[in-house]
Design a protein around this nucleic acid. Structure first.
Lengths: 209, 209
DNA sequence: CATCAACCGTACCGTACGTTACGGTTCGGC
DNA sequence: GCCGAACCGTAACGTACGGTACGGTTGATG
């Protein structure tokens, strides 16, 4: 399998550049402050001149960092073969587990904080990048499964987008906003498993045929 | 009825101080930048010396601003008299409408952006203030209704907190995170009404006795 | 070895902004 | 009218940080 290719402008990322972005990610996760050009240069043992040469300006570095992290988060795709109710339920539950795991991770929280704080200003819109690689990517990934479930007579809904949004709500509930606002809620393995199962059951109760 | 009392340290807010906080709110809503001490002083026609005398430092001003806005958002309480299924449904649906209206307002989005970007740093935790006056206050307000619904044999759940979280998920879904990330989604009157009705129906389908 | 590009480390510059200081003005109390 | 407190407007200070410049080093190429 070919490694994922991430581009900066027209060029692909070198290993050294990935190291720099990992350094930026580390600083970002350790706390919003500290993520300065000087800080990244020191952490990555590179010069600020190099940072500006590679990424243009601070916004370019942040954008590349967000995209780099997004490229690392690759949830395993759900297959739509042999679709009976049990297989569909397993697929939905696994999707819910992956979603909760990613969402509650330090990197996701830090990245969404950064993107939220930068949204609303014009600039290069980090918010849109996170939306595109987060919420929207989730929808694109699950919708084929939902459609297949409807085609197989297992689910019943008019608007696939709407059905996905309800599933999203049943899975995430208030978890993301609470984490973003600094609520130290525990989301251990068992909690995630239970939440995913509950979301699957509730979704079937609402949209099962 | 006595006006709500908001304190700064041990003193209550004077009208002039409220004007200052409204100026800060205006700048905040107009865009994250611009909310500087100089900007607030200019907008409110007061001196920076006064700002520091009243609010201590920038964090104090931001904290007071957040609390001031929170004090302005007072959703009408839901009464638990004459509780039949229809009355309960109306109460839930109204709660959902109010929640969506507040959540999608400019002030709420701006305030949550500010709080999210300040969460995670130690400091005076704006995130906790917003959580306390937002998400947690919603729970405290709706839980009596849910409990009354269960006592009246209209609802069925084990954990009231869990039931509320599911209702929250059904109402809010992906709206808040998308707005915070800068998604320009339309949430007009009709959309809110439809979403509230759907949330009520789905909640009854899941938790109706 | 000579050359050249890439890069590291550091010093430097300009600006934005939080914070403080101060002179001038208003206003209530005596 | 006099005094002091509160406050306005503005100037000034210190610092953090984005961005730039430059000398020194490394490493590949011929």
């Amino acid at each position: 399998m070919t490694p994922p290719i991430l581009t900066i402008g027209d060029d692909i990322l070198t290993a050294r550049q990935k190291d720099v972005l990992d350094a930026a990610l580390g600083l970002l996760v350790e706390g919003g402050d500290g993520l300065t050009m000087t800080g990244v240069a020191r952490r990555a043992s590179c010069s600020k001149e190099t940072l500006y040469k590679w990424f243009g300006d601070r916004d370019g570095l942040l954008t590349a960092t967000v995209q780099w992290q997004a490229a690392k988060v690759r949830m395993v795709p759900v297959d739509r073969e042999r679709l009976d109710k049990r297989a569909l339920g397993i697929a939905l539950e696994k999707f819910a587990r992956d979603l909760l795991s990613v969402l509650s991770g330090d990197a996701s929280v830090a990245l969404n904080r950064l993107a939220v704080s930068h949204a609303g200003q014009e600039k290069r819109d980090l918010g849109m990048i996170v939306l595109e690689n987060g919420r929207y990517a989730m929808g694109r990934r699950l919708k084929p499964v939902l459609d297949a479930g409807r085609d197989a007579g297992l689910l019943k809904f008019e608007d696939c987008e709407d059905a996905f949004r309800s599933f999203f709500g049943l899975v995430v509930r208030d978890v993301q906003i609470r984490l973003l606002l600094g609520d130290r809620m525990k989301l251990d393995e068992k909690t995630i498993l239970d939440d995913a199962r509950r979301a699957r059951e509730q979704f079937f109760a609402l949209y099962g045929a």
